[in-house]
Design a protein around this nucleic acid. Structure first.
Length: 439
RNA sequence: GGGCCCGUGGUGUAGCGGCCUAACAUGCAGCCCUGUCAAGGCUGAGAUCGGGGGUUCGAAUCCCCUCGGGCCCGCCA
């Protein structure tokens, strides 16, 4: 092991373009397979892996003393070799140890899957995330966000960032994290809802990618206390159906980005992407309840919301009837929706809102909002809420707001349903839940 | 918040009253093997069975408490 000369470092994924040349790679010692006269070192960098052939006995012994995950710089000759994984390997290497690992990893990163239970994996997230499979999951998140942004930019939406420290609990009060703000009470924002609506008065079309915080003590495989919300809000809409059309376009854009930029990650995870149909099937809430009653005999009519098993059933139904993995449920009862929700002018007990079910799970909530100042005052009053804490928000409506609406996609849920992960924590880098605040 | 279940070497599991001075796989250490690719072979170290109390001649195995974790439901993205 010696100093290697300065030379531009390439990614392992670029090896093919350098066959016949000397190259410089850098990364982590994923695995060393020692045979009697030759050893194979699998080097992993931020994108892929490369096989390094060690024929120097002394070098092999030195490498053998390193723990897995030690950081190396390798310089050697890129050679096309049919026997090598991927058809290319690096020979005659000189190797510099940039940073030796100080202990063996608690689980094997060189296997196709980490063989440990989810809590163990989460406890060791800084290490587990290095595994190519786990890394691929978060690459899907990254490309999904990129597709979200590029689609909306193309539709002339403007990206905003709104405060996460807020003075009042946004959606009615319950389940927010309280923090001490210079001796005054403040809260972690449970949604950018108010600010994105306000910003419709500025840009007409806005979106935000950011964290939201929910202090709900739920303990399920599909809930987190902090998650990433992909928020959209737009003005001059006809009603919630305009918003649904934008959502369908956004989903198509996200999927297109995944097709285009995440092929390797999708292949590694064995994911088959869904298709957004020309027209996503839509069912009114009341019709959905009738359908469930008629076909399953379970009578949930009169319930203000759908139970998870009914959402799953509706998901299967949409796949059967329409070949669609997406299903809109529209017109949720006003009683279940926040005060800013716009009622259905024809049936005021129901709202101009929707949920989008993806593979049987609620992925998106959205709808039309109230836009007249007087309607807000009345909505707050009818719920026994005082307008004072909402003053800044209400100012937007006092000075004229167009009919508008929007939606929010849960990023971790989106990826979880894409890869069909049984637990949302698998698609969250460092999950925050009832028990988990570290790492 | 309600219900159900689990806690055994680093990791994943088996054992569920005496044959357990705890087994298997993998990792780890050492030796061997000219091409591996979840490499292979041999040898070895490593857990007093989450913690505490109890029942019993005898407990990883049964009971109680406690701590930690999982699933379902509620609620939501």
């Amino acid at each position: 092991m010696q100093e290697v000369s300065p030379m531009e470092r390439i990614w392992t994924t670029q090896l093919r373009a350098h066959v016949g040349k000397r190259v410089r790679l850098a990364g982590w010692l994923q695995r060393l397979r020692q045979l009697s006269h030759v050893s194979f070192l699998i080097l992993r960098d931020g994108k892929g892996t490369a096989q390094i052939v060690i024929e120097d006995q002394e070098l092999a012994e030195q490498l053998g003393r390193l723990h897995a995950e030690s950081v190396l710089v390798v310089e050697g000759l890129a050679v096309a070799e049919p026997q090598a994984p991927g058809g290319i390997e690096v020979r005659q290497p000189t190797i510099e140890v940039l940073s030796p690992a100080s202990a063996p990893p608690p689980f094997d990163l060189f296997r196709p899957r980490i063989k440990a239970q989810l809590p163990t994996i989460l406890d060791h997230a800084p290490l587990a995330l290095r595994h190519p499979r786990h890394r691929a999951i978060f690459y899907l998140s990254a490309v999904s966000m990129q597709g979200f942004r590029s689609t909306l930019r193309a539709l002339e939406f403007v990206e905003i960032q709104t405060p996460k420290l807020v003075a009042s609990a946004t959606e009615g009060g319950a389940n927010v994290f309280a923090v001490d703000y210079f001796g005054r009470p403040a809260y972690l924002a449970q949604s950018p809802q108010f600010y994105k609506q306000i910003m419709v008065g500025v840009f007409e079309r806005v979106f935000e990618v950011g964290p939201v915080f929910r202090a709900e003590p739920h303990d399920t495989p599909r809930h987190l206390n902090e998650y990433v919300s992909l928020d959209v809000e737009l003005g001059f809409i006809k009603d919630h159906t305009t918003v649904m059309d934008v959502l369908a376009q956004v989903l198509r854009g996200m999927l297109a980005a995944l097709h285009e930029d995440a092929g390797d990650a999708l292949a590694l995870l064995g994911v088959k992407l869904p298709e957004v149909p020309e027209k996503i099937p839509a069912l009114h809430f009341a019709e959905a309840q009738e359908l469930i009653f008629k076909q399953t005999g379970e009578d949930a009519r009169g319930e203000p919301d759908l139970a998870p098993q009914h959402e799953r059933w509706l998901g299967e139904w949409a796949l059967r009837e329409y070949g669609s993995e997406f299903l809109f449920v529209t017109g949720y009862p006003m009683v279940k929706r926040p005060f800013y929700t716009h009622p259905d002018p024809e049936r005021p007990k129901y709202s101009n809102s929707f949920d989008l079910l993806f593979r049987g799970l609620e992925l998106v909530t959205g709808g039309q909002r109230l836009h007249r100042y007087e309607d807000y005052l009345a909505a707050l009053a009818s719920r026994g809420l005082s307008p004072e804490p909402f003053e800044g928000y209400l100012e937007a409506f006092k000075y004229g707001m167009p009919p508008h609406g929007g939606f929010a996609i849960g990023l971790e849920r989106w990826v979880a349903r894409l890869i069909e992960a049984p637990n949302i924590r698998e698609t969250t880098l460092f999950p925050r839940d009832l028990q988990r605040l570290t790492p």
